[in-house]
Amino acid sequence: MSTIKRVQQWATFARIWHIYDAAWQNPFESAKLLRKYLMGMHKPIYHPLNDCGDHVIVINSKDIALPGDEWKKRVYFHHTGYPGGASWTLAWELHTKDPTLVLKKAVYNSMKGNLQRRYTMERLHIFPDSNIPENIMKNVSNQLQQLRPKPTRLDSYDEKYVKEFPKIIDYPKDYILR
């Protein structure tokens, strides 16, 4: 390597598009991961005043998994500004109204409240399912790893695979499966 090229870095300030599958993921833990990529904290050139954040596309946001009983217990507060304008929405209600909002708010709240936050949020594209517009999908060049593996449910295996799966015992014929 020549002396000049030792410090050469091509396309350092280029914006990269990442894709993240939110199915079966905790949105509050995912928010920390997404924040890192949106703010550009995964690059060694990071500086708070340096506009080096990337785009992140989140798919399957309708399949997020909240921990414990948070669907029932987590409450989102809104106030219209008028007297009596307060309203409290449960997480599951918010999710039925808009399946992207829980994740969006999680990412928004995971960032510090400064002037840059709203511009950073502009780089987050959330989709409730995996149907992404062609013009957005063609930019993608990286996939973010899911925080936890997505389990496969028994009904999603094909019947033959389940039937031929090795087993220890056969149930007796008069055994009632419930």
Partner: peptide
């Protein structure tokens, strides 16, 4: 480093 277990991206690119 755990490699990506499900390749959504490659699947989607294939579908395209």
């Amino acid at each position: 480093r755990i490699e990506n277990s499900d390749h959504i991206l490659s699947k989607m690119l294939k579908n395209k």
